[in-house]
Amino acid sequence: GPMASDKRPRTAFTAEQLQRLKAEFQTNRYLTEQRRQSLAQELGLNESQIKIWFQNKRAK
């Protein structure tokens, strides 16, 4: 629909990254900035991508 703007492409996470994020989520529903930074480095992701993933996951 018209609401779907092309400005922010959805990140396609790899299965491996998703597995890691899910495991982290089961341990911590809320990430500290430090955890998020190390996860971002570990997974080669953007911190904001991880932050948003957690927000979306909590919203469900």
Rank of each mutant, 00 (worst) to 15 (best):
Q41W: 07
N46R: 10
R58W: 07
L45K: 02
Q34V: 11
Y30G: 04
L39R: 00
Q41L: 13
R58A: 07
G44F: 04
F13H: 02
A12S: 14
F13T: 02
S48Q: 13
W53F: 10
T11M: 10
F54I: 02
R29V: 05
R35P: 02
K7E: 15
F54C: 01
Q19I: 11
K57E: 08
A15W: 10
Q17E: 02
K60H: 10
K57N: 08
L45N: 00
N56A: 12
W53M: 02
L43M: 06
A4H: 14
T11C: 14
R8I: 15
Q19Y: 07
A4L: 12
Q19D: 09
Y30M: 09
L21R: 00
I52S: 09
K60D: 07
Q49M: 10
K7N: 14
R29K: 09
N56H: 10
Q26T: 11
S5V: 06
E47P: 11
Q34L: 09
I50L: 06
R36I: 12
S48A: 10
S48F: 13
A12M: 09
R8S: 15
Y30P: 04
R8W: 15
Q49R: 09
A40V: 04
G44W: 03
P2T: 05
T32C: 06
Q55R: 14
E24T: 03
R20S: 05
R8K: 15
L39F: 03
E24A: 06
S38N: 10
W53S: 00
N28L: 03
A59K: 15
Q37Y: 11
P2S: 15
Q19V: 11
K22W: 12
K57H: 08
L31T: 03
E42M: 05
N46E: 12
S5M: 03
F25G: 01
R8C: 15
K51T: 13
L45F: 02
Q34Y: 11
E47T: 09
R58D: 04
F54N: 01
R20N: 02
W53A: 02
F13Q: 01
A59E: 07
I52D: 06
P2Y: 03
F13W: 08
L39P: 00
A4I: 07
K60C: 12
P9D: 08
R58I: 09
A40E: 03
A12G: 07
K51N: 11
R8V: 15
A15R: 10
R36T: 11
A4C: 15
M3Q: 15
R36K: 10
S38V: 14
T32A: 04
L21G: 00
S5R: 02
Q37F: 11
D6M: 02
A23C: 09
L18M: 07
L39H: 00
Q49G: 03
S5A: 05
W53N: 01
K51L: 11
G44H: 06
L43I: 06
A15F: 10
R10S: 15
N56S: 09
E24N: 02
Q49E: 08
T14C: 03
F25S: 02
Q55F: 11
F25Y: 08
A59M: 11
Q49D: 14
F13K: 02
R35M: 10
Q55G: 05
S48E: 14
R20V: 07
K51G: 09
P2M: 06
A4G: 15
Q34P: 08
W53L: 03
R58L: 12
A23S: 09
S48L: 12
L21I: 02
P9C: 14
G44C: 06
S5G: 12
T11Y: 13
I52G: 08
A12E: 12
A4T: 06
I50Q: 00
N28D: 08
S5C: 14
S48D: 12
T14Y: 02
L18R: 09
Q37W: 08
Q17C: 03
N56W: 15
R20W: 02
Q41K: 12
L45P: 00
K57T: 10
T14G: 03
S5E: 15
D6C: 12
R58H: 06
Q19L: 12
T27N: 12
K60F: 04
A23N: 08
S48G: 10
K7D: 15
R10H: 14
K22E: 12
N46K: 11
R36D: 02
K22L: 13
W53Q: 00
Q17N: 03
Q19T: 11
N56C: 14
E47I: 07
N46A: 13
R58K: 04
Q49I: 14
S5Q: 08
Q37C: 06
Q17K: 04
R8H: 14
R29A: 08
A40S: 08
E16W: 12
S38R: 11
F54E: 01
G1W: 04
Q34R: 08
S5L: 02
P2Q: 15
Q26L: 08
G1T: 04
A4Q: 15
K51A: 13
P9H: 06
F13C: 03
E33P: 15
L45D: 00
E42L: 06
L21C: 02
R35A: 08
A4P: 15
E24F: 03
I52E: 13
A4S: 05
L45Q: 01
T27V: 12
F54V: 01
P9A: 06
L43D: 00
A23G: 05
T11L: 12
R8Q: 15
I50C: 01
M3P: 15
Q37H: 11
T27W: 07
A15N: 08
N46S: 11
Q17P: 00
A23H: 09
Q41V: 13
K51R: 11
L45G: 01
T27M: 14
R10L: 14
L21N: 00
Q49L: 12
R10G: 15
M3Y: 02
S48N: 08
E16S: 10
Q19K: 12
R35D: 06
N46M: 08
F13E: 01
S38Y: 10
A59V: 07
A23F: 08
S38Q: 13
T32M: 03
F25P: 00
N28S: 10
A15E: 08
L45E: 01
A4K: 05
P2E: 15
A40R: 01
Q41S: 09
E33Q: 14
P9M: 04
R29I: 06
A40H: 02
N28M: 04
L18S: 05
L43S: 02
Q26I: 10
Q19M: 13
E47N: 04
K57D: 02
Y30C: 11
Q37V: 09
I52C: 11
P2V: 05
R35E: 11
Q49F: 07
R29N: 14
E47R: 03
L43H: 01
